[in-house]
Design a protein around this nucleic acid. Structure first.
Lengths: 163, 163
DNA sequence: TATTGTTATACTCTATAACTATA
DNA sequence: TATAGTTATAGAGTATAACAATA
C-alpha cells in the first residue's frame, strides 16, 4: 500500500496513455483503426471465441465489439461461423488474410517502438510490460479477463501472430 | 535495444491504457471530464501559462486545448488574462475554485487507485510511475514537452497536490 | 508574412437502450 | 424469462482547416 502522493504522481503519468495511443493511432492504416486492431490482436492471441468472450477480453461493451467485428468481417479478416451448440452465438476466427493484417500491424508498431524506445534496455521494456499487465489485472477485475495467457486452446485455430 | 518480441508484448499490454482510462472517466463528475481534468492538472502543476504552452504540455492540438479551456473558464475554474507583452496571447491561471476542483479530482482518483492497487508495494507504484514518465518522454519528443518536475522518488514524499 | 487562438467540421471510440433470435 | 448479438443514438476526444487579431 503506497502513500497518497504516490498515487497522485501515478495519475499524472497516466497522461502518457493518451500520448502513446494517439501516436499509435496515427500509424494505423485507414481501413483498420485502433478498435479493429485490438480485435485482431485478441483473436490472434487467444484463438477462436464467441462475441461475448471477445468483449470481455477487450473490456468493452458487447455492442462496441459487435461493430468492430462487423467491420473486420466485411473485409474478410475474420469469419463468423454459427455455434452448433448455441444458435444465438457466433464463433469468431481469424482468416489467413486477417492473420496477414495482424502481422503487418505488429510490424508497424514494433518498428515504431524500436525507434522510440531506442535507449531502453531489454529489461526495462520487459519490466514496463509486466507492470502494465499487472495494472490491467488490478483494474479489469470483474469485467475484463486479461492476463497474458498462453495461446489458444481451440484446436482448429492458428494462433499467435508471432512469439 | 530490445528484441521485437518484447515490443510486441508491450504493445499488447498497451490495451491496459483503455481499461484504466475508461474507468477513470467513469469517476469524473459530469461537468469536468477527462479533457478538462488534464488541463486543471497541468495548470496545477506548472502554474500559469499561455495556451500554446499548455497544448504542448498536454500533447494535444491547440484547437482541442482551446475548447477545454473555454469549458473550464465558463465554470470559473480558470481565468484567462491578457498578456501585456503579446496581445495575441492569453495567460491561463487556476482560480481558487479551480484549485478546489483539482483537489477534489485528486481525492477521487487517489481513492480509486488505493483500492485498485491495494496489493502493490510503494516501490512498485513508484517504479511504474517512473517508467510511464520515461515512456512519455520517449514518445513525446519533438511535440510534447513532458519531463515536468522531478517526481517524488524518495521515501519522503511531497504531499503538495499542486504548486 | 508569421504566429496566437478560436471556431466549424468530421471521424473514432464508447456506452445505453431498444430489438431480434434463440435458450 | 433470460441470454447472445445487432443496431440506433448520443456524448466525449481528437485533428484539420478556415478564420480573426496581433506581431
Amino acid at each position: 500500500m503506497a502513500e497518497p502522493a504516490r498515487y497522485e504522481e501515478l495519475v499524472r503519468q497516466f497522461s502518457a496513455f493518451g500520448v502513446i495511443k494517439r501516436e499509435l493511432n496515427r500509424l494505423m492504416p485507414a481501413d483498420c483503426h485502433g478498435g479493429s486492431a485490438s480485435v485482431l490482436t485478441v483473436l490472434g492471441r487467444h484463438g477462436a471465441m464467441r462475441m461475448s468472450k471477445l468483449a470481455e477480453l477487450l473490456s468493452v461493451d458487447l455492442s462496441v465489439t459487435s461493430r468492430h467485428v462487423a467491420h473486420l468481417a466485411e473485409r474478410g479478416w475474420i469469419e463468423r461461423s454459427a455455434d452448433p451448440a448455441d444458435k444465438r452465438s457466433r464463433i469468431l476466427r481469424l482468416t489467413p488474410a486477417g492473420q496477414d493484417r495482424l502481422d503487418e500491424l505488429f510490424r508497424r508498431t514494433t518498428e515504431l517502438l524500436a525507434e522510440r524506445l531506442d535507449g531502453w534496455s531489454e529489461e526495462e521494456v520487459g519490466l514496463l510490460t509486466e507492470l502494465l499487465a499487472r495494472l490491467r489485472d488490478s483494474f479489469g477485475e470483474g469485467r475484463a479477463a486479461p492476463r497474458p495467457v498462453p495461446p489458444a486452446r481451440e484446436e482448429t485455430v492458428r494462433t499467435s501472430a508471432s512469439t
